[in-house]
Computed example of a mutant assay.
Amino acid sequence: MSPLIGAAWLDVIERADQLVLNYVSKAADVAHGVLRADQRLDFSRRLRARIEAERGGSQNAREVAKVLARFGDPVALVEREARRLAQAEAAAAGADQSGVSAGDRRGAEAGQGTGSTMRFPAIVDDRDTPPGVRAYRRMAQERLARSPGRGMPFAGLRRAAMAGANPMTTGGRDARTIVKEHPRETAAMVILVVAALLVPFDLPLLAIFPIPLVVWAGGAVMVLFSESWDPRDRFLGAGAPLLGYTVGGVLVGGLRVGSEPGLNAFLTQFWAVSGIMFMIGTGFGVVWLAYRLLDLN
């Protein structure tokens, strides 16, 4: 394995692990002041173990985000744990009042425990449900999440673009999370935008190449070597500026020539519109890359 591929693989693993760590840390923060220190530690340990079991060793950040979404809001988990502990303590107190010996009570606490349990409470889709039903339900939920036209137009895109959005409502994907998890991809898109913004300026050539073209080449290389997009998305996002420059310039330039014959007239119109078409193509390419990075479909 080359160092570049190895570094990219480690980065993918770190993203998935970071999602789990953030979720468990949030649950532990919510539990502060609600559970005792020993209860909070036991709760966090069991929650992490249950997540790892449901995760099944997956290093895919999107799959891990779906697992965390099935666990639900950490606040609800803490409230359920607090109710369970309160019920266990009430049951122990009732056993004392009914004349159960202290030794029997300690034996019950060893099995149930007022500070811990052997099993984490069931998550939302596995309580008293046959495995086959759970599998088909999960498939239906994923298919529904991928179906176009859910809710109001672009509601998911607006929700994910909110920097303060709840990651659980967007599958772990919001603007702030995207920037933190994908700094290289974000930098690549920024470089492509900078290349487009440099087009209107009459800058000197760098050797024989226009400076916007050189800047675009740097951003395109970063996009093509990214592991976060599919190959089709990489080529589409990086190639959209050149596609707009060539195909758009030829089409629009040819239409602007009109009845004026000759190659010189065509080239004049091509040079007049090709830069604008490069900027438009860059805009489409960057929007597509950003949308695919959010992965809202």
Rank of each mutant, 00 (worst) to 15 (best):
S2A: 12
S2K: 08
L4T: 15
G6L: 14
W9Y: 11
V12L: 10
E14M: 13
E14K: 14
E14Q: 15
R15D: 06
Q18N: 12
K26Y: 11
K26I: 06
A28Q: 08
V30E: 05
H32Y: 10
L35N: 08
L35F: 11
A37Q: 03
L41S: 06
A61I: 02
A61F: 02
E63A: 04
V67M: 00
V67Y: 00
L68Q: 00
L68V: 03
F71S: 00
F71H: 00
P74F: 13
V75S: 07
L77Q: 01
V78Q: 05
R80N: 11
A90R: 15
A92P: 03
A95Q: 12
G103T: 15
A108E: 04
G111F: 15
G111Y: 14
T117A: 15
M118G: 15
R119I: 15
R119H: 13
V124T: 07
R127V: 01
D128N: 13
T129D: 02
G132D: 14
R134M: 09
R134L: 04
R134K: 08
A140C: 04
Q141G: 05
L144F: 08
R150V: 13
R150T: 12
F154P: 00
L157E: 13
R158P: 00
A160P: 03
A161M: 15
A165P: 04
A165Q: 08
A165R: 06
M168V: 11
A175H: 09
R176M: 14
I178F: 05
I178W: 02
P183S: 13
I191L: 13
A195W: 12
A196I: 07
P200G: 09
P204G: 08
L205C: 04
L206D: 07
I208D: 15
V214T: 13
V215I: 13
A217Q: 07
G218H: 11
V221G: 11
M222W: 13
L224W: 14
L224T: 04
D230C: 01
P231D: 03
D233M: 08
P241M: 11
G249Y: 05
V250Y: 06
G253A: 05
G254T: 08
G258S: 06
P261C: 09
F266Y: 01
L267T: 05
Q269N: 11
Q269M: 06
F270G: 03
F270Y: 15
W271G: 06
A272T: 03
S274A: 14
I276S: 05
M279D: 02
G281S: 08
F284E: 01
F284Y: 12
G285E: 01
W288E: 01
L289S: 13
L296R: 12
L296D: 09
N297F: 10
N297R: 12
N297S: 04
